[in-house]
Amino acid sequence: NQASVVANQLIPINTALTLVMMRSEVVTPVGIPAEDIPRLVSMQVNRAVPLGTTLMPDMVRGYA
């Protein structure tokens, strides 16, 4: 089972991601792999991401 990136807090739209906003968790469906967390830092979300939501590739500008 692969860990995915999950929002550690509410992340408002257009917010640049920081390490404290994300955690890794084994979830279904699988989202962005946890090993990509360092790559996600400073990328912006293109929608509001509620606490506990799995980050999907289409939620992060420039990721996919």
Rank of each mutant, 00 (worst) to 15 (best):
N1R: 03
N1C: 06
N1K: 04
N1T: 15
N1W: 09
Q2L: 15
Q2K: 04
Q2N: 12
Q2F: 11
A3C: 10
A3I: 09
A3N: 06
A3V: 09
S4W: 02
S4Q: 02
S4H: 02
S4L: 01
S4C: 05
S4Y: 04
S4T: 04
S4K: 00
S4E: 00
V5P: 02
V5E: 00
V5R: 00
V5W: 02
V5L: 04
V5F: 02
V6E: 01
V6K: 04
V6F: 02
V6D: 00
A7M: 05
A7R: 01
A7N: 02
A7I: 08
A7Y: 01
A7K: 01
A7P: 01
N8V: 10
N8R: 09
N8P: 02
Q9M: 08
Q9A: 13
Q9P: 02
Q9R: 13
Q9E: 11
Q9W: 14
L10R: 10
L10M: 10
L10E: 14
L10Y: 13
L10S: 15
I11M: 04
I11T: 01
I11A: 01
P12M: 15
P12T: 11
P12C: 05
P12D: 14
P12V: 07
I13A: 12
I13R: 07
I13K: 13
N14V: 03
N14M: 09
N14I: 02
N14E: 15
N14L: 10
T15C: 05
T15A: 12
T15F: 09
T15K: 08
T15I: 05
A16S: 15
A16L: 10
A16H: 14
A16V: 13
L17K: 00
L17T: 00
T18I: 05
T18F: 03
T18N: 05
T18C: 05
T18K: 06
T18S: 08
T18Q: 08
T18W: 03
L19I: 12
L19Q: 05
L19A: 06
L19T: 07
L19N: 04
V20H: 14
V20N: 13
V20T: 15
V20M: 15
M21P: 00
M21G: 03
M21C: 03
M22C: 03
M22A: 00
R23C: 04
R23L: 05
R23Q: 04
S24A: 14
S24G: 15
S24W: 12
S24N: 09
S24D: 11
E25T: 09
E25Y: 07
E25C: 06
E25S: 07
V26Y: 13
V26H: 09
V26D: 15
V26N: 08
V26Q: 14
V27L: 09
V27Q: 10
V27G: 03
V27Y: 02
V27N: 03
V27K: 07
T28W: 04
T28F: 07
T28A: 08
T28E: 15
T28M: 05
P29T: 05
P29Y: 04
V30E: 15
V30K: 04
V30S: 11
V30M: 15
V30R: 03
V30D: 15
V30C: 11
G31Q: 03
G31T: 01
G31F: 01
G31Y: 02
G31M: 02
G31E: 00
G31L: 02
G31W: 02
G31S: 02
G31R: 02
G31D: 01
G31H: 02
I32K: 00
I32F: 03
I32Y: 02
I32L: 08
I32M: 03
P33D: 06
P33Y: 15
A34R: 05
A34W: 09
A34Q: 10
E35K: 07
E35I: 09
E35D: 12
E35N: 10
E35H: 12
E35A: 11
D36N: 07
D36H: 09
D36G: 07
D36W: 05
D36K: 07
D36S: 10
I37Y: 03
I37P: 01
I37G: 06
I37F: 03
P38F: 13
P38G: 12
P38S: 12
P38Q: 11
R39S: 07
R39C: 06
R39Q: 12
R39H: 07
R39V: 07
R39I: 08
R39A: 08
R39P: 03
R39Y: 13
L40N: 00
L40C: 05
L40I: 13
L40Y: 02
L40A: 01
L40D: 00
L40S: 00
L40W: 02
S42Y: 12
S42W: 14
S42L: 14
S42D: 09
M43H: 11
M43T: 04
M43W: 11
Q44H: 10
Q44M: 13
Q44E: 08
Q44R: 11
Q44C: 15
V45D: 00
N46Y: 14
N46P: 03
N46K: 11
N46R: 11
N46M: 14
N46T: 12
N46E: 14
R47M: 12
R47D: 06
R47Q: 11
A48E: 11
A48F: 12
A48T: 11
A48Y: 08
V49F: 02
V49N: 01
V49S: 02
P50K: 12
P50Y: 12
P50G: 12
P50W: 13
P50L: 14
P50V: 11
P50H: 10
L51F: 14
L51A: 11
L51K: 12
G52R: 07
G52V: 02
G52N: 14
G52M: 12
T53D: 14
T53R: 07
T53I: 12
T53K: 10
T53E: 14
T54M: 04
T54H: 03
T54C: 05
T54N: 02
T54V: 11
T54S: 05
L55R: 01
L55A: 00
L55G: 01
L55T: 01
M56N: 11
M56G: 05
M56Y: 07
P57W: 06
P57A: 14
P57I: 08
D58R: 05
D58M: 06
D58K: 06
D58L: 15
D58W: 11
M59V: 05
M59W: 07
M59C: 04
M59A: 09
M59Y: 12
M59N: 06
M59K: 02
M59L: 05
V60C: 03
V60P: 01
V60H: 01
V60E: 00
V60D: 01
V60G: 00
V60W: 02
R61W: 12
R61I: 14
R61S: 09
G62N: 06
G62P: 06
G62L: 09
G62T: 04
G62D: 10
G62F: 09
Y63C: 03
Y63D: 03
Y63F: 10
A64V: 09
A64G: 11
A64F: 03
A64Q: 09
